[in-house]
């Protein structure tokens, strides 16, 4: 039995929502009642059935709608997908990885047939059946990175490794939490993270870089990151901030549950075999407050996390304007009872 793909939007009328099964599989990012930065990186291994970790590249009920939204973003702003000239080989690496993983995890939806360099890729949800020569750019309608990431959920950054650093030299970035690929492309690991508050002083990036530059092929790693978004909007880019920014002023006690979304990024890190680059998929999961609080443990815990979040982090995450309204709303769902350890719902 395959996935039933929802027909929904991430803009205009915002019809996005999660089915009850998808609410329970949401990657809730807090395993205790408080939040601070940590180098929370762990091996990216397969997790329980029914979780977002059931497959290492997760495809879910939002797949088709997300790919349609990505196509709209790219039509408006092609600079969201860029690859510096030396990154084409890494693009082929990524194409292989994503085709293999999607075909492995979801054989009813994706098929990859290989006959030497001659490959056939069937993507049934998007109605694609292409035969091409691996390594020959002229046999695909786009460059290899763009081709496959128009068919894969999440943003993708490809990092070149040289001089003991990682360089943001290619990417497909249409569902980002307020950072610009066009501005950051070509920067090293410390430079593109420069605007993040507090973490540099804590040595987070030095340790993270050391870890990432040592990632081995076949041993990917992962971490979770989070922010909040008003309306289920995937494209919260700085490019369009003047268009979506006003949403943040529309939160009222009456509409918090429907408008405010927890936005979780499942970031994974994979060594690429031919280019020795690292690909960094940033998979975005959205859940509206009304959906999240159907799990009482999550409601209690999110209330405590948001209430106690350091001011600098709240500002960086853009919560300032609606945090009091959100905390007040969540407080009514927090009976001060204990929360069980771990991320999952009770």
């Amino acid at each position: 039995m395959g996935i039933t793909f929802r027909k929904e939007t991430f803009r205009d009328d915002f019809t996005f929502k999660n089915s009850p099964e998808h609410i329970r599989r949401f990657p809730f990012p807090f395993n205790e009642d408080a939040y601070m930065y940590a180098v929370n990186i762990e091996p990216h291994v397969v997790g329980p059935k029914g979780s977002v970790l059931e497959n290492l590249i997760d495809v879910d009920e939002h797949y088709v709608a997300e790919m349609q939204d990505r196509a709209l973003v790219l039509a408006e702003d092609p600079l969201r997908c860029q690859s510096l000239p030396h990154m084409t080989l890494a693009g082929w690496d990524l194409l292989e990885l994503l085709m293999e993983q999607q075909a492995l995890g979801y054989p009813e939806h994706f098929t990859l047939e290989r006959n030497g360099d001659r490959w056939r890729w069937i993507n049934r949800p998007l109605g694609i059946d292409d035969t091409f020569t691996f390594g020959d750019v002229s046999t695909l309608p786009y460059g290899p990175m763009e081709y496959i990431t128009r068919q894969s959920q999440g943003d993708f950054c490809i990092l070149d490794q040289r001089d003991g650093n990682l360089w943001m030299d290619a990417g497909m970035v249409t569902t980002q939490a307020d950072w610009s690929l066009d501005f950051d492309i070509g920067m090293n690991f410390f430079e593109w993270h420069a605007p993040v508050p507090l973490a540099h002083e804590k040595g987070i990036f030095t340790r993270a870089l050391k870890f990432l530059t040592n990632i081995q092929q076949g041993k990917p790693a992962r971490r979770l990151n989070w922010t909040m978004t008003v309306n289920p909007r995937l494209d919260t880019s700085p490019e369009n901030y003047h268009k979506w920014g006003p949403d943040r002023a529309t939160v009222t006690p009456e509409n918090v549950g429907d408008k405010v979304h927890l936005r979780v990024e499942l970031q994974s890190f994979w060594r690429l075999p031919r280019s020795n680059g690292i690909v960094f998929p940033i998979r975005c999961y959205l859940i509206k407050m009304d959906e999240l609080v159907t799990q009482p443990k999550w409601a209690r815990r999110l209330h405590r996390v948001i209430r106690d979040l350091p001011e600098e982090l709240a500002t960086y995450k853009g919560l300032t304007r609606y945090r009091p309204t959100l905390v007040e709303w969540l407080s009514k769902l927090d009976d001060d009872g204990p929360t069980s350890p771990g991320f999952g719902p009770d």
Binding site: F183, P238, Y241, P246, R248
Partner: peptide
């Protein structure tokens, strides 16, 4: 912003009153 791109030889400017 202080955020700077050598590739663009420019600092980044972001709308200061986007929310209102």
């Amino acid at each position: 912003r202080d955020h700077y791109s050598r590739r663009l030889a420019a600092f980044q400017g972001v709308c200061i009153n986007a929310e209102d």
